[in-house]
């Protein structure tokens, strides 16, 4: 289903959910939960957004049913730890590549995805200052290295 323009801000989280459907369905579930919450704040009044959000809710309910034996789904505190570990693992991979001077598309994507997953942590409550800083750094690094590679410069 096409994403209404008013909900464009959640497109990257929805794409991350799609990319993790098979690799890590728990990540896919919480990315969609984040998208749902954010989408409702952005616009749940116009018919096209309501229709989209109702579909997203159907998807979330069916995912929860299918994964009813996963502690990470039935207990959000376990889900919180799962998403945080996954995001930080991705951040550390990209950071190690960066510090080793290995600049490539995959590490840029890892920095960016880790920042999106750190966004997702906000569904569990207020984010820690450390995670806010990691998110800021990861997003900045992803943009900076992407721009360097595009213009043929070597990142510092």
């Amino acid at each position: 289903m096409a994403l209404p323009a008013q909900l464009r801000a959640i497109q990257h989280h929805l794409r991350t959910a799609q990319e993790h459907e098979d690799r890590d369905p728990v990540v896919a579930y919480y990315c969609r939960l984040y998208a749902m919450q954010s989408g409702m704040k952005l616009d749940s009044k116009t018919p096209e957004c309501r229709k989209f959000l109702i579909k997203l809710m159907d998807q979330l309910e069916s995912m929860k049913k299918e994964m009813s034996d996963h502690d990470s789904i039935t207990q959000e505190v376990v889900g919180n730890a799962h998403i945080e570990n996954y995001a930080l693992k991705m951040f550390i991979y990209a950071d190690n590549e960066d510090r080793g001077g290995r600049f490539h598309k995959n590490m840029i994507k890892s920095f960016y995805t880790s920042s999106l997953l750190l966004d997702v942590l906000s569904v569990f409550g207020e984010m820690s200052e450390e995670n806010i800083q990691h998110r800021k750094y990861a997003r900045w690094k992803a943009t900076y290295i992407h721009n360097c590679l595009k213009s043929g410069e070597t990142p510092l």
Binding site: M36, R50, M57
Partner: peptide, 26 residues
């Protein structure tokens, strides 16, 4: 008509909020 549309929209919005709360109930 616009008042009816707005009532429908707000009812659907409430339903979505309720479904979200139920989804997250442990």
């Amino acid at each position: 008509t616009s008042s009816l549309a707005s009532t429908v929209a707000s009812t659907e919005q409430d339903e979505l909020s309720q479904r979200l709360s139920r989804l997250r109930d442990q």
